[in-house]
Amino acid sequence: MRGRGLRAALTPYALVFPGALWLGIFFVIPTVVMLSLSLHSGNVTDGYVFTWNWQSYVDGITTYTDQIVRSLVYGFLATVIELIIGFPVAYWIAFKGGRHKSVYLFLILLPFLVSFVLRTISWQFLLSDNGILLGPLKSIGLIPKDMHILATGAAVVCGLVYNFFPFMVLPIYAALERIDPRVLEAAQDLYASKFQTFLRVVFPLSLPGVFAGVLMTFVPATSDYVNATVLGGTGNTMIGNVIQNQFLINQDYPVASALSFTLMAILLIGIFIYARALGTEDVLEVAAR
């Protein structure tokens, strides 16, 4: 009996062990190494020494304030646009999709079977100055000849919206799909109009999905660097590009690590505030009302 009790006590730990090991090796250790590196000083030729060098944070943040703010703005814009486009799509698939729901979901996911970089490069073709989109519009004189979308902030935001779109749609869809149709019937039985049903029943129930969708698009969109590289022009550099340059071109590992940590801190604080404002518990409360 005792042996079995011990085994029962150990089972949860045994189950969690692979996951914990994975996180330990691939998340905790690198994070600690990076934190330590951000406090090193030196250069690649003379070596790096740990010196509690907080200056890297000061240098990184003061030099790249513009890029940090811009990344947050781009990330925010992309998330809002995705929410505006993505919610109706998820709603339609969940409630009007009928037998073909899985086909529609597959279509949403389809671009994801192509590599991220290739997908973004293909937008270069779409948006190019004399390309499929702008070429005809220019030739019929609807837009001025020298107008361009590529190499602007708008192109970068468009790219972000496109690339992270499924991360917004799928969680919302999952939340909507779970709504019991009888709840909707009940609302109508209680003389709620269609609009009121949506506002007071469907939308509150979808909030956990919206919450997840916003997180899953805002975080990667803010730290992305591919879209700015491929679709941006001058004055569109995001913080991800700066970090990448510091790591790979300047080999300034302390500043690169400091910037990564700064970004991580900003995002964590943002998420925390957001969770408090629209936290999961509150969401449940709203839904229960």
């Binding site: 690198p30 190494v33 990076m34 330590s36 590196l37 090193h40 030196g42 250069n43 690649v44 030729t45 003379d46 070596g47 790096y48 020494v49 970089v117 660097y225 591919v226 590289t229 491929v230 990448q244 790591f247 790979l248 080999q251 590992y253 690590s257």
Partner: peptide, 24 residues
């Protein structure tokens, strides 16, 4: 390569060696 994607994993390697001193 513009995106230097491959390089990111290399940066990981470089980080892992952060204790190694330069030998100018």
């Amino acid at each position: 390569d513009a995106f230097r994607l491959a390089g990111l994993s290399a940066a990981g390697l470089a980080l892992a060696a952060c204790g190694v001193q330069g030998k100018g």
